[in-house]
Design a binder for these strands. Structure first.
Lengths: 135, 135
DNA sequence: TCCTAGTTTATAATTATTCTAAAGTAAATA
DNA sequence: TATTTACTTTAGAATAATTATAAACTAGGA
């Protein structure tokens, strides 16, 4: 993804392409594989990667802005920290409890044959499968 | 579940049946349906239900002791608070984001036809399905 | 009954996250 | 281009959930 596309991506979501947002967006979206992170891990990686300095609050703000714009997914993981995923296409996860690591599973790798009806007055928004791993 | 069984349950898990543990165990396990809670909600319910006074730390300690003994399940839910479930049999959940409510789904209600292999050197511990609900 | 290891308790500490309000900046307007 | 304005960033304070601490308490064995 080129810089020009980053600008487009931000503008089309109503986000001003500030220096901080562009830097973070480049870091998150200019990659081939999907990327899983917490705000803390992203912060550390940004510190290493760029000379630019970001307030922690800015990283929170930016990540949430990207999430609200649909550029990031928040992932259900038990625990204190919130995980995000640059893969916004519907998919599932392995979760390795030993390393606290998430691994994407393509939606087509899991086929569910039978599923219950949503309770009264509710609809199914989405189905997430978590495969917990052990050694 | 009778009081005698509560004592047995605690003793057989190596937990001394203290007043606090017995009270909390009675509250959690003497029910027909499974029960979902957070430490905060449990604390509030105990305040109403019993005249007994519990330190918040005791509720944390006790819930974790019960979890470690296998009498409670911790449930993967996104968000700040940790959810627990008195249903320790393998099963799945509806999660209602509007009300932050969990609803059990019997394991047999969901049939998975195809599932990927665990990554290198890892094994599958368990599979959890989350059905997120909307109105 | 006495002793001891395990438990409870109040409080402090920690951790992740959100809030605040002042200073900075993108971009619309004149 | 200069000015204005609304949006952003920032450092630090505030909040919320949870865990740690260390002193007081208690169950159960000697």
């Amino acid at each position: 993804m080129k810089k020009i596309d980053i600008f487009k991506k931000l503008r089309s979501s109503g986000l001003r392409p500030t220096k901080q947002r562009v830097e973070i967006a480049k870091f998150l979206f200019e990659r081939d594989k999907t990327f899983h992170f917490t705000v803390e891990s992203l912060n550390k990686l940004l510190e290493k990667k760029t000379t630019f300095k970001f307030a922690l609050a800015t990283i929170y703000n930016t990540v949430h802005a990207f999430k609200n714009a649909g550029h990031l997914n928040e992932v259900d993981v038990r625990g204190k920290k919130t995980y995000f995923d640059t893969n916004i296409i519907n998919h599932h996860h392995f979760y390795d409890n030993e390393t606290s690591e998430l691994i994407d599973i393509d939606a087509k790798e899991i086929v569910i044959q039978k599923i219950p009806k949503a309770p009264n007055g509710k609809k199914i928004k989405n189905v997430e499968v978590f495969i917990n791993l052990k050694n």
